[in-house]
């Protein structure tokens, strides 16, 4: 008889921390599953991985995985991750962050990490709201939508995380959704393999706060919404502005090569070492 083995559980601290704290239907668990499957596929050891996060629902993720984990200040995950990567350039450093954590509170860290092109993998779980701190509106809350701090509707325009990262100089930018979980797994895998700053935005569902305040329905309804609105990049480029509406593209948006920061740093350090014959 074949025994079903769930390889995901190899990487989870399932004896201690489960069931997890996320609300019913929250996409964070799906994204965590995709990350673990990608890591498992790449054959990384637990000790080769470092997962760094700030504060937030999504940033609770390192608590549940059995990698080297670092749970840091709100918005400052990238600063800590830069330090980890500089000290241990051979380590695969993954930063898990939310939309508010990365674009509002840690906005400057995001653009400067992207500018330096340091070899980090940043996974931004975009649920359109600050979930853990009580449902405040975030830079990615769509205009007109409700949050606990915008009871009459949000008037702020929206941040496009992928365009921001691309403009700041990130060399691997991709967007996917929690519904397209197989695609998410393959994109995360490519992001890990990419040498340089790679950012993956994963559109996710917050049915308990954002969904309830905006009458988006339950978790399956929000995931169906993702299925309809996320269009593959090539198909998205062909759409006319009228057809675009509230749709967004999914897939790999940018994949280029640039000198990587830790490699350049090592080169510089080597060139400054005293050579033979120097006094």
């Amino acid at each position: 008889m074949k025994i079903p083995q769930k390889r995901v559980h190899k990487f989870l601290r399932h004896g201690k921390k489960f069931p997890h704290v996320w609300c019913p239907g929250c996409s964070n668990g799906i994204v965590l599953g995709a990350i673990i499957r990608a890591v498992d596929e790449l054959g990384y050891e637990k000790d080769d991985m470092a997962m760094v996060s700030g504060i937030g629902c999504s940033s609770r993720m390192p608590v549940y995985v059995d990698f080297n984990t670092l749970h840091t200040l709100h918005g400052r995950a990238l600063a800590y991750a830069t330090g980890v990567k500089m000290v241990k350039p051979e380590m695969n450093v993954c930063v898990v962050t939310g939309d508010g954590d990365s674009t509002a509170i840690g906005g400057n860290h995001l653009i400067h990490a992207a500018r330096r092109n340091i070899d980090l993998t940043v996974i931004v779980i975009n649920n359109n709201i600050y979930g853990m701190t009580g449902g405040q509106y975030s830079p990615t809350t769509p205009t007109g939508d409700f949050a606990t701090t915008t009871p009459y509707g949000n008037i702020d325009p929206v941040f496009d995380i992928c365009k921001l990262a691309e403009g700041a100089g990130a060399t691997f930018v991709a967007r996917t959704t929690a519904y397209h979980v197989v695609e998410a797994q393959s994109i995360i895998k490519q992001a890990f393999e990419h040498k340089g700053f790679s950012i993956v935005e994963i559109v996710s569902a917050c049915p308990v706060i954002y969904g309830k305040l905006n009458k988006k329905g339950d978790a399956p309804a929000m995931m169906r919404d993702m299925k309809e609105r996320a269009i593959p990049v090539k198909a998205f480029e062909k759409l006319t502005p009228e057809q675009v509406g509230n749709k967004y593209s999914r897939g790999i948006l940018v994949n280029i090569k640039k000198p990587e920061y830790t490699a350049e740093y090592t080169k510089l350090m080597d060139s400054l070492q005293p050579q033979k014959g120097d006094k």
């Binding site: 074949k2 079903p4 769930k6 995901v8 559980h9 989870l12 399932h14 489960f18 069931p19 997890h20 996320w22 239907g25 929250c26 996409s27 964070n28 668990g29 799906i30 599953g33 995709a34 499957r37 519904y179 979980v181 197989v182 797994q185 995931m223």
Partner: peptide, 16 residues
């Protein structure tokens, strides 16, 4: 194995 992948709570194992 879609249920396995989409389960946010790691509560399903799809046997191969």
């Amino acid at each position: 194995e879609l249920c396995d992948r989409l389960c946010p709570d790691f509560a399903i194992t799809g046997a191969k």
